[in-house]
Amino acid sequence: MPVEVRLPTVLRQHAGGQASVQANGGTVGEVLEDLVRQFPATRGQVITEDGTLHKFVNVYLNDDDVRYLDKLDTKVGDGSVVSILPAVAGGAG
């Protein structure tokens, strides 16, 4: 089923400038795979080559960070919104 995927500024350039796109899938992982199918330049930006969530991004289902749900296996439903944001971190080191 199609769900809304909200993109961070850095990924919008790979999706024709759109802030939000529709993608299909029953889980967050499937939705993100469909995103890459539609917009190949997003490959490697959200999911790593070994199929895990990239550590420099956070992915949310509605209000919740999917790392605290079932990660990429988190099920999506009607009206779900998947949001992608950069992980913001740093420090004096």
Binding site: Y60, A87, A89
Partner: peptide
């Protein structure tokens, strides 16, 4: 959320909000 004197990580949920 890193709760450190040398590192920071913005709380992801607060970032979304």
């Amino acid at each position: 959320v890193a709760a450190s004197a040398r590192l920071y990580t913005v709380d992801p949920r607060q970032h979304l909000l």
